[in-house]
Design a protein around this nucleic acid. Structure first.
Length: 268
DNA sequence: ATCGGGACCTGCTTGC
DNA sequence: TGCAAGCAGGTCCCGA
């Protein structure tokens, strides 16, 4: 589920718990994408949460002696609940801080809870590309990295080594806004069009962030409320419906095993 | 190096 | 109505 806007919305939602001290760790099901490390129940209580950062779709909960790395996978969400709230079937992990708990719910269990003393050097984070909303990312980034690449541009911008945080929804939406056909070969796109695409990626992510992300099925804010960017989609999930710009029927196809939506008239 | 496909897991929707 | 197949916001890992 969560792409950058949803993870960043989550980060902002849990930011207020920074400064608090962990009183307990509850692991109800350690079998996530990777096993939740044993020993957190012992090592975290008494430790103060210093800060909460985000890198790509990873949330980084910083402690003095290391960092708790969390990923929401496809169906994960984090909520702040009263610690005594009864846990649902898919509530796998709680970070308890006195009367409240940060609770991870993840039906599909593609999410992760990991521990690292040096997260930026962790194998999962080490080779990540630039943050799309920061100044280090622009059309030049995409143009340079794409030379000689034959993959579809949609798969190319979903590659975390190129740029992070762009998942299936926002890849589709950004390509529509840029007027680029998702199946076009990455290496055959001009610098001018990549400049446009980079701007559209930033714009799409910012618009989504402003709307509190997209709630399709599982994603909720840390207070349980929903995002509403799904109401603004131009193409994602709109197979057969009229393009909001030109009224042509939106088409669906596959690129890299992911559903891909485009307008045959607006995108080339 | 790049690529395509399979894998991980549950739940909901679709079609026979 | 029941059941199986197909699909879902991510991304690692393997073999070609």
């Amino acid at each position: 589920m969560p792409e950058l806007p949803e993870v960043e919305t989550t980060r902002r939602g849990i930011a207020p718990i920074a400064g608090q001290t962990v009183t307990a760790v509850i692991v109800r099901n350690a079998r996530l994408r990777w096993p939740v490390p044993a020993g957190l129940q012992r090592s975290l209580p008494g430790r103060r949460l210093r800060a909460i950062d985000r890198r790509a779709k990873y949330l980084l909960l910083r402690f003095d002696h290391g960092t708790l790395i969390m990923h929401l996978g496809m169906s994960g969400s984090l909520r702040i609940v009263p610690a005594a709230t009864p846990a649902g079937v898919h509530d796998h992990f709680d970070l308890v801080m006195g009367k409240i708990a940060l609770r991870l719910r993840d039906p599909r269990r593609f999410g992760a809870v990991l521990w690292s003393a040096a997260p930026e050097q962790h194998a999962l984070l080490r080779d990540l590309g630039p943050e799309p909303l920061e100044s280090g990312f622009d059309g030049g980034t995409l143009y340079t990295a794409s030379r000689g690449r034959r993959v579809a541009v949609k798969q190319f911008i979903m590659d975390n080594r190129i740029v992070v945080g762009v998942g299936n929804i926002y890849a589709n939406e950004s390509l529509f806004r840029a007027g680029i056909h998702p199946h076009r070969s990455a290496g055959r796109i001009s610098q001018a069009r990549y400049t446009q695409l980079a701007a559209c990626i930033k714009e799409t992510l910012r618009d989504a962030l402003r709307a509190g992300g997209s709630t399709l099925r599982d994603f909720v804010h840390t207070d349980g409320s929903e995002g509403y960017f799904q109401l603004d989609y131009f193409v994602y999930g709109r197979d057969g419906l009229a393009c909001r710009r030109c009224k042509s029927p939106i088409r669906v196809s596959r690129a890299g095993q992911r559903s891909t939506f485009h307008c045959p008239h607006c995108q080339s």
